[in-house]
């Protein structure tokens, strides 16, 4: 479905992604885990065309989307829930949901979109209560829900999530992971998930990649990663390491 081959990305002179290769099959949930500054967000932004790759290629379906601008990539069916929510403070909740479907207005029409908005409000009842409020006045968690709902409104075939659990209460986090799993099961949405909460991510995902300093260090099924000692030590917070190691 989505395949990155030897991707290199720079910020100015800083070489951030070094020969990153990964793939996500259709209907799969893949987790990217790694420390702060490892390059996870950069991987997602490179896929989305915000920080275009200097070399390497990104294949989506049969198409090469490496050099496409961000809005074209959304039209192809890839949506990102960006890190830090990135909502539009002076627009209302409903505005966000409508704008999420911006690319569908010409093709799908108002009714289909109104139905989808209704679906989002069922999925996130908090948003229904606040539907006419300015997004800037929502709580952090509500903004996160809004960012996810906005991305889903484009009916993406591939959903990129950058730390969806950030700032959310544990129960809401659980809801969100349940939602992600359900999207996959019901609509075969493919998911690439970046998470600090490696445990929750690996519980939900089918496969995972470990990113360190811009390189893919490890890949495997979620089960393999959960059982891997390095992963346990570094990301799952189990202190199994003997002192003399």
């Amino acid at each position: 479905m989505l395949r990155l081959q030897n991707i290199n990305t720079y910020y100015g002179d800083i070489h951030v992604l070094k020969n990153v290769s990964l793939h996500v099959a259709e209907g799969e949930i893949v987790a990217l885990i790694g420390a702060n500054g490892a390059g996870k967000t950069t991987i997602l932004n490179t896929i989305c065309g915000i920080t275009p790759a200097a070399s390497g290629s990104i294949l989506y379906g049969g198409d090469d989307i490496t050099q496409l601008p961000p809005d074209r990539i959304v039209h192809k069916g890839i949506a990102q829930v960006p890190e830090g929510r990135q909502i539009f403070p002076p627009l209302t909740v409903i505005d966000h949901l409508q704008l999420g479907a911006y690319i569908r207005y010409r093709t799908d029409g108002k009714d289909a979109i109104a139905q989808d908005i209704e679906r989002m409000l069922i999925l996130f009842p908090r948003l229904r209560e606040r539907q006419h409020q300015y997004a800037g006045t929502l709580s952090g968690g509500e903004q996160q829900m809004l960012a996810i709902a906005r991305a889903l409104m484009s009916r993406p075939r591939v959903l990129l999530l950058d730390e969806p659990s950030m700032g959310l209460a544990p129960l809401v986090v659980q809801d969100i992971f349940t939602t992600i799993a359900r999207l996959r099961d019901e609509q075969r949405t493919t998911v690439l998930l970046v998470e600090q909460n490696a445990k929750a991510a690996l519980n939900c995902a089918d496969r995972g990649y470990v990113v360190e300093t811009g390189k893919i260090m490890l890949e495997g099924t979620a089960q393999e990663l959960r059982e891997n000692h390095e992963v346990q030590r570094a990301y799952l917070g189990r202190q199994k390491r003997p002192i003399w190691e």
């Binding site: 989305c48 961000p70 949506a79 539009f88 627009l91």
Partner: peptide, 24 residues
């Protein structure tokens, strides 16, 4: 209008706007 709202979205946060398919 959708177009007007899209313009406002771009004004506030062009990157987020491009991530929902708006041509900035």
């Amino acid at each position: 209008t959708m177009l007007g709202k899209a313009m406002r979205a771009c004004a506030v946060n062009p990157i987020a706007a491009s991530l929902i398919g708006i041509n900035v």
